[in-house]
Computed example of a mutant assay.
Amino acid sequence: MRLRLVPETTRMNFFRMDRIPLLFSMIAVVASLVLFAIVGLNFGIDFRGGTLIMAETPEEQPVGDFRDVLTELDIGEVAVTRVSDPAGRERHAVLMRIGITDEDPDAQKALVTQVQETLNAAFPGISYLQIDNVGAKVSGELVTAGILAVVSAIAAILFYIWLRFEWQFSVAAVAALVHDVALTIGIFSLLQIEFNLSIIAAILTIVGYSLNDTVIVFDRVRENLRKYKTKDLQDVLNLSINETLARTVMTSGTTLIALLALYFLGGEVIRGFTFAMIWGVVVGTYSSIWIASTILLRLGVKRDWSKPSAGAGNQFANIDA
């Protein structure tokens, strides 16, 4: 007997109150943009520049002691956080972030050496698990490259769907992707989770995952438009979403199981990435079902491909079954 998270055949009406999810999403996107403009993102070392040091001591040391030792060096902004071990092993590790003080790589290397010598003297037996240095110039280039990567991906997707389907499908799919990216930026701004290069990778993955869901639904919509030539577009969309719902829920559910395992057991280094992916899978599935399809319903689509489009392309009447 096969496992089914939803029945094989469903008859849910996803457009009975279609204005509510659309209005909710519009409010959420605006709120995300406002949060980004006012609060901003908690940029990591990748984007701000500086030094990140993860160290472990034989016995637990108060975080305040690390902060006091580093502050006395007068090396700029300092942040120290405890690193927990998701596997439950006893571990005395801390993550130290030191703000950039010099664009010269040699000076930055000397700074790291000075910090290590000071920590070695203050905490005998300390070992270093990770040391990363990013200069101010490099961090600025990474910000530009990250923004360009996301914008380029969305533009390429717009062009691809436009060629494969019709412009209405393209606009609906890209609107859903922009919705997903905006809400991801908003949640990171709200929770002030560190935003680094791995989050850019997560956003690009979210874009691809959400697009995959949307294209599967749109493929079924196009098939059903040709099959049911006189059926109302809303009924065609409902039918198409219901026919792909079992696949969507199973794919999203199994992906979430893997991501939740990574989030709780994968350690501190990838926690931000996995959080972004978990959020993206949930939001991407939601937008594929409600946002993209609702926008497509509003725009309308051409149904008789043997005839030229007549303006809006929403041709329902006078079509033979």
Rank of each mutant, 00 (worst) to 15 (best):
G284E: 05
K231L: 10
L23C: 10
I75D: 04
E8A: 11
G267P: 08
R220S: 01
Q108C: 00
I193A: 05
K227P: 02
A153V: 09
T71Q: 10
F47E: 04
W305V: 11
L142D: 04
A110K: 10
Q61D: 02
R89G: 02
S309W: 11
F47V: 03
R11P: 01
L52F: 01
L95Q: 15
I131M: 14
L262S: 07
K231G: 00
I126C: 00
R16W: 07
A107W: 03
R19D: 09
N196T: 05
G88S: 06
A172E: 06
V283K: 05
K137F: 05
L5S: 02
G253H: 05
L5W: 07
A201Q: 08
A310W: 00
L233W: 02
F159H: 04
V151A: 13
V150A: 13
L73Q: 13
G88I: 09
Y286E: 09
V63M: 07
Y286R: 01
G64T: 12
R16Q: 12
I193H: 11
S252Y: 05
S84P: 02
P7W: 02
L233F: 15
E243R: 12
A122V: 01
R4Q: 12
F165L: 06
G267E: 10
A156Q: 03
I295V: 15
A37E: 01
V150P: 09
G49L: 04
R247P: 10
H92E: 01
T51Y: 00
L177R: 15
Q234R: 15
A310G: 06
A310Q: 12
F15H: 05
A28I: 12
L22Y: 08
A173S: 15
V134I: 12
V181Q: 08
F15N: 08
V207F: 13
D46Q: 00
T285V: 09
W305P: 07
